[in-house]
Design a protein around this nucleic acid. Structure first.
Lengths: 339, 339
DNA sequence: CTGAAAGCGCTTACAG
DNA sequence: CTGAAAGCGCTTACAG
């Protein structure tokens, strides 16, 4: 028993060992494992039992070489640390790795910083993956362009204007519309909006949702209550002051990092939430989780997004027809900050 | 030109193509690429130039099969989302993937939830990796035990009592000693300590550092100011109240999640920081980054940890002698919360 | 239903 | 210094 384990440790069993032990050909063993081709039911039975009993696992690498596949999918993650999103990516990875494992694929992850494509190139030139998931969509998406040119199959998490791309995303527009809508219906008509760079796709998507809500309720938007490209502290502080002066009843933040800073500014100025000002965020990160008061926001299931994305990529690799655009749901979570 | 690209896209160049084009054997080409064996300098030159000009990249998978290697390292990440640490893991991954790429390795990541080893087993049984990094050490470390039994080379991030393991970690004990020391020297003698589960290695390490500081300064520890296994909100609230009653001058939190809750409790009770109570954290996550007042804490470089860890694993795989235990530095970052 | 043989793209003794 | 050949552990026409 111990010796047997020793041996297993030193030398892995191969398909040839199985074939020899059973007095059949490697071809036969291979076929019962893959399930391709007709095999006599008793032969099949014997092979299956032997494999089971001796815990034989085919070498995926060798299998891949013969089939010109790797059974790996690549995941490209942003390397420059955006703290707000790290738990999003973690959850997403979880979903991806589960879906991949279920199909006996592994996930190799590569991180790319800023506009440095070196790591991406390595991944594709080394032939280590069958397909790739791009976890962040840019307006000017160099990684996507590169993969396209290289004919490497890939899907993107996010939304892009390039209709060639297979895209999977949460329905941010609809989500933002609904949250805004809920606030408007509470009688809060002076809802200010503050967000980040317009070079990022999602900033525009969220803005759209906000505008949709006003239109739907036939209210006119006060454009002086909208501030985008607010990427630095001082600017945020100024805008918050401005909003207060203009009589805003609620500040809608495009993400939690912005929301955090807005909350700090309000705190500094002794404006209390929700009494003197309502606050809500279009995104749910752990950043706000422990805040007092609890912050109203949207909830997105990142793990589910990962799972769906991975499945879509795998289907695509298998040559199945996949839809170019998949939108996932969301939840509006009302908390004290908008009471 | 376009046609050429087409062809490249359809069929990758192989070592046989190179050999044929140059009228030499595959053996020769292989040797100049690997740098093993003596080759005539002009032959070498020609091969190198051809490869360069035609952008030939050897197939790593095939190379691996022949050498019985995969050129992949496995990274095991905790799947159950601990929000506090997600940015730590992200930074760590960045370091690992950079070090791996530099050695032409790829990083395949697997996430394991709780005590489910299925994914870990997949990774090793599928022979997809040459070695593994365990990113979290447990007191009762089933993953480590499994890898040991399987004779899979691995290193751990963290500290373990199992001296067989190759460990890489920040010097938490020394770091906590120094931070505590600094506070004591400020004249804050009633420094309370609050931390999580003692089943986690690091909880004990941090406690040790705290105790070291008292011993070093020849002060006696008031054990009623130490609370461990504080893993739920109500308990934390009670302890904070208790500490206040006992006249604590400062509350030291073992991590930022705890610190967050402590801060909320203080806020609820209108105890202001730092006027009425000082607060510091033994760990730096983005969770506290935007807090007002800014929180004194320790700073650890997770990316550096990742890099060193990966290098250590690679050295180990190459058969080099590596030290069983590597400790990395830290920084004490003083902010307003302990003024 | 089953097998011998060639092949996936490399490496590496062995021989010269 | 260089090459023919066997081998890594699989798959897959082709033939029976």
């Amino acid at each position: 028993m111990t010796m047997e384990k020793e041996k297993q440790g030193l030398k892995k069993m191969t398909i040839a060992d199985v074939a020899e032990a059973l007095g059949v050909s490697k071809t036969t063993v291979s076929r019962v494992i893959s399930g391709k081709g007709r095999i006599g039911s008793d032969t099949k039975e014997r092979v299956l039992r032997y494999i089971e009993e001796h815990d034989y696992k085919p070498n995926v690498i060798a299998k891949g070489l013969a089939q010109n596949k790797t059974y790996n999918i690549g995941l490209i993650l942003p390397g420059n640390h955006n703290f707000v999103d790290s738990s999003f990516f973690q959850q997403c990875m979880l979903g991806i790795s589960e879906a991949a494992a279920a199909a006996d694929y592994d996930m190799v992850v590569s991180m790319i910083c800023d506009h440095d494509l070196t790591q991406l190139e390595r991944l594709v030139l080394n032939n280590k993956v069958d397909g790739i998931i791009l976890s962040r969509t840019l307006v000017e998406d160099a990684p996507a362009a590169y993969l396209k040119q290289r004919h490497m199959p890939f899907v993107v998490i996010g939304t892009s204007s390039d209709t060639d791309l297979i895209q999977i995303d949460h329905d941010h527009r609809e989500a933002c519309r609904e949250l805004t809508s809920v606030l408007l219906m509470k009688g809060l008509h002076k809802v200010a909006l503050i967000g980040g760079s317009r070079e990022i796709v999602i900033t525009n998507t969220r803005l759209q949702g906000y505008l949709d809500a006003f239109e739907e309720q036939e209210l006119t938007v006060d454009s002086s209550l909208i501030c985008l490209d607010a990427d630095n502290g001082p600017m945020l502080e100024r805008m918050v002051a401005e909003f207060v002066k203009k009589g805003a009843e609620c500040i809608l933040c495009m993400d939690d990092s912005i929301c955090c800073q807005v909350l700090n500014t309000l705190k500094k100025n002794r404006i209390s939430v929700p009494e003197d000002m309502r606050v809500a965020s279009f995104y749910n990160s752990p950043l706000l989780e422990n805040n007092l008061p609890a912050i109203t926001s949207l909830h997105f299931d990142a793990a589910a997004l990962g799972t769906v994305t991975c499945r879509t990529l795998l289907d695509h690799l298998e040559g199945k027809e996949v839809s170019k655009k998949t939108l996932l749901g969301y939840e509006v979570v009302l908390k004290e900050s908008t009471k």
